[in-house]
């Protein structure tokens, strides 16, 4: 029974994570590039154009994955914050801090690709469409988290305060989404790609979603490694690691 939870305690150890993640990353990047190659081949070359939208439908293969990850990222951040607050696990706070910039980047890309997709589809860069508007507010929530976290001189306070904000935010995300949706139907807006995705677009879309998921994980792990180093710079193992890697570098 106890051994079932060992991975959890190990993840809580910065040293264990730092050492293991160095081994995981090359494999994860390899996996990402395989998925990316396949995904780009399908999304740009194999998949047909849409009979209405033409080739601009290919933007969907970027837009949908990054939009999905922007929301998954926020929920993941809130879960990490809960673990940090409830079990006082420092690694969880570090993870939340690491997810924030990557999630914000995903949200920005969802907005950007949504706008660029909107131009040929709606004839305008911006439409107050329910999903784009929610993404915009999600972007503000990410920026708020990062801004609050960087406004404290004590890291302990920054972690906890930003976590409370993330939890308040995660309660609000569905409320924001549904109120914006309600408001949107009131004003008879348009929406992108409603009514499901046709079968011929599915392979490219699913491979790209998988690729972006792996990319998200990779970037978060990279950011988390930096965050762990920042937080543990006084630790003995960091000094050993810095000395060890110095030997590797020829001068």
């Amino acid at each position: 029974m106890a051994s079932n939870w060992r991975w959890f305690h190990q993840l809580g150890s910065p040293k264990w994570f730092f050492e293991k993640s160095a081994k995981w990353l090359p494999w994860l990047w390899a996996l990402f590039f395989i998925l990316l190659g396949l995904g780009l081949y399908h999304s740009l070359w194999v998949s047909p154009q849409d009979y209405q939208q033409g080739h601009s439908v290919r933007i969907m293969y970027i837009h949908v994955p990054v939009a999905a990850l922007s929301m998954v990222g926020y929920v993941a951040m809130a879960i990490a914050c809960t673990i940090g607050l409830v079990w006082k696990m420092k690694m969880a706070f570090a993870a939340a801090r690491a997810i924030a910039p990557v999630g914000a980047a995903m949200t920005f890309l969802a907005l950007f690709t949504g706008a660029v997709w909107g131009k040929p589809t709606w004839g305008t860069w911006w439409e107050w469409d329910a999903r784009l508007t929610s993404e915009l507010l999600l972007f503000f929530l990410y920026l708020g988290f990062i801004a609050l976290h960087s406004s404290f001189s004590e890291r302990n306070k920054a972690d906890k305060a930003a976590s409370v904000l993330a939890l308040v935010g995660v309660i609000n995300v569905p409320i924001i989404y549904f109120s914006v949706k309600w408001w949107n139907t009131l004003h008879q807006g348009y929406s992108l790609g409603t009514g499901g995705v046709a079968d011929e677009f599915k392979p490219a879309l699913f491979i790209m979603i998988a690729a972006i998921y792996v990319l998200f994980a990779n970037l978060v792990i990279m950011r988390l490694r930096a965050e762990v180093l920042l937080r543990e710079q006084k630790a003995r193992w960091v000094a050993d690691w810095a000395k060890g890697s110095e030997k590797g570098v020829k001068r």
Binding site: L137, F140, N172, W183
Partner: peptide, 14 residues
Amino acid sequence: SVLILPLYVPILIF
């Protein structure tokens, strides 16, 4: 302001 304005949106809408 930056933190809470996005949270105010639903109240503003309704």
